[in-house]
Design a protein around this nucleic acid. Structure first.
Lengths: 141, 141
DNA sequence: TTCTCATCTGAGCGCATGATCAGATAATAG
DNA sequence: CTATTATCTGATCATGCGCTCAGATGAGAA
C-alpha cells in the first residue's frame, strides 16, 4: 500500500487530511461551538492568577467579603472588585449584601469541581505538569 | 486619620480585614503561589477556543496528525502548529513523528480529566457528573 | 441631614498573546 | 542528488485584557 494516500474533499472537509475517518469521527462527535466557547471562556476565567486565587480562597473559606478576599489574596480591593465583576457576570460567584459588606461564594458546581480536582492534583502530585517537563515527552526533532 | 490604603501585613495577621480568622485560614491553606501559577497557566491554555478544540479533538480521536487536526477543527495548519507548540511546551500534548507526519496525543492526565469532566458537564446539563472527585470542601458556613 | 466606610463602575494605559505570513527544517519519493 | 510534502519557527500586527485611578453608589453612624 502506498504510504500516504491523501483522500481529499470529504464532504465537509476542504482541507487535505490523512485520516478522513478519524476526522469525520471528530467532526461528528464535536460539541456545539457555542458550548465549546462557553467552556473555553470558563477556563479563561480560571486562567488568570488573580481570579483563580480568589476562587481558591472562596473554595477554602466558603464565603468571604471583598476586603477579606483582598487580604487573603494580597490584592488591591479595586482589582478584587474588578475580578469579581467578571466572575459574577459569568455566574461563577454570587454576592450577598449584608450591611456594608458583600459576601461572595462559589455558585457554579462545575467550576467548583474543576477547582477541587485541581487542588487535589496539586496536593498529591508534587511534580508539576506544566513547568519543566523536559523528561521524555514532546520532543520531536 | 488613618492611612488611605490597606497595607497588607501578610505574614502575621492583616488587621484591615473584617474576618481575620477566615483570612488566616485561607492564607494557611493556600497552595504555593508557584503551584497556583502553574494551575492558572494550564487553565489559560484551555481558555483559548482554538486550543480547546484541538484538545477536545484529541480527546475524541486519541491521536491525530497536524493536518487532520487542522481539518477536524477547521483551522489553518500554521495556527494549529502554533497552538500545538504552546501545548507541547507545557507538556499537555506530546508529538510522535512517523515519517513526515507528526501525531499528537494528550499527555497530561490532569488536563484529560478536566476535559472529560467538562464534556460530561456540557453533555448532560449540570448534575452530579463525576464520582469521587467532589469532596465536601467549599461548604458555605 | 451629613459623614464615613465598603464596594462598584467607567476610562485609560500598557503588556500579553493569538493569527497570519514567509522562510526553514525534516523526511521520503523519483 | 533534487523535488515535494509535512511541519516547525521567527517576526509582525492587531486585538484583548488586566491593573490602576478617580469618581459614584449604597448603607449605616453621628
Amino acid at each position: 500500500m502506498r504510504s500516504d494516500e491523501k483522500v481529499v474533499g470529504l464532504d465537509g472537509c476542504s482541507d487535505q487530511c490523512v485520516h478522513p475517518e478519524k476526522v469525520q469521527l471528530v467532526l461528528d462527535a464535536t460539541l456545539p461551538v457555542d458550548d465549546l466557547a462557553r467552556a473555553a471562556s470558563m477556563f479563561k476565567l480560571l486562567g488568570d492568577l488573580t481570579r483563580s486565587r480568589l476562587l481558591f480562597a472562596l473554595l477554602e473559606a466558603g464565603e468571604l467579603c471583598v476586603c477579606d478576599l483582598a487580604a487573603a489574596t494580597r490584592t488591591q480591593e479595586a482589582t478584587v472588585s474588578q475580578s469579581l465583576r467578571m466572575l459574577r457576570a459569568s455566574g461563577v460567584v454570587t454576592g450577598r449584601r449584608q450591611g456594608r459588606l458583600v459576601f461572595y461564594r462559589l455558585a457554579d458546581a462545575h467550576v467548583r469541581m474543576l477547582l477541587d480536582l485541581t487542588r487535589e492534583h496539586i496536593a498529591h502530585d508534587a511534580t508539576g505538569v506544566a513547568g519543566g517537563v523536559a523528561t521524555s515527552a514532546g520532543v520531536i526533532r
